[in-house]
């Protein structure tokens, strides 16, 4: 039973992943990628990682939907009205990636994998939580800092109007000059 689910989802994940670069429409490409992630998440659920599997589903849906918006903004031909190709060096890329796959597959099948050590914990989620947040919170601190730096950097990069545009050259305005007013009475 588990094997059947795994195989179905694995084939689905690979097929959806391949579809990302085959379909004409950007919206379809985004949702093909999402499908690939969801299939992978089901496979992760098979590995008794309930939290991580569900987390992947949650994160990826949000990411992909946001991605779709950017896609409409910036991409050529988002709806796939005209079939077109946006590739360069297709043959080379195909050769490199096929080679990579053959190499990895050979390694996977030829290596003698070690036997499993230790027993799985009763609650994998708790194990993860303790690893992330345990004694020194090292992982969490690093990830948190990275995410924080990302937030600052992305806002700085994507921002068009700075605070002098909004509050005046002397920052003298109490109410910022925004094109559309927000809801907190500013």
């Amino acid at each position: 039973m588990q094997l059947v689910v795994f195989v179905v989802c694995a084939v689905g994940a690979v097929a959806a992943g391949a579809a990302v670069f085959r379909v004409d429409s950007m919206a379809r490409a985004t949702f093909a990628l999402l499908a690939s992630f969801v299939f992978v998440a089901v496979d992760v659920l098979l590995l008794h990682l309930a939290y991580l599997g569900v987390l992947v589903i949650l994160m990826m849906i949000m990411e992909m939907v946001v991605m779709a918006v950017f896609m409409i903004m910036y991409m050529m031909n988002p709806a796939g009205l005209m079939p077109m190709s946006m590739m360069h060096n297709r043959r080379g890329a195909l050769a490199i990636s096929a080679g990579t796959f053959v190499l990895l597959a050979a390694g996977i099948l030829l290596v003698r994998w070690p036997a499993r050590r230790g027993a799985p914990p009763a609650e994998p989620t708790r194990q993860l939580g303790e690893a992330l947040m345990g004694s020194k919170m090292l992982v969490m601190m690093v990830l948190g800092l990275a995410l924080f730096a990302t937030m600052v950097a992305t806002v700085v990069l994507a921002q068009h109007r700075g605070r002098y545009d909004r509050y005046g050259d002397e920052l003298e305005r109490r109410v910022p000059d925004d094109p559309i007013r927000g809801g907190v009475g500013r």
Binding site: G17, V20, L47, M86, N89, I96, S97, A105
Partner: peptide, 25 residues
């Protein structure tokens, strides 16, 4: 091995896309 083969296939497809596509997205 099956799981790792799945990972290898996804990696290869992703690599192909990252190498061959023009658009940043």
């Amino acid at each position: 091995q099956l799981f790792l083969l799945l990972a290898a296939a996804l990696l290869a497809i992703g690599l192909y896309g990252a190498l061959s596509q023009q658009s940043i997205v």
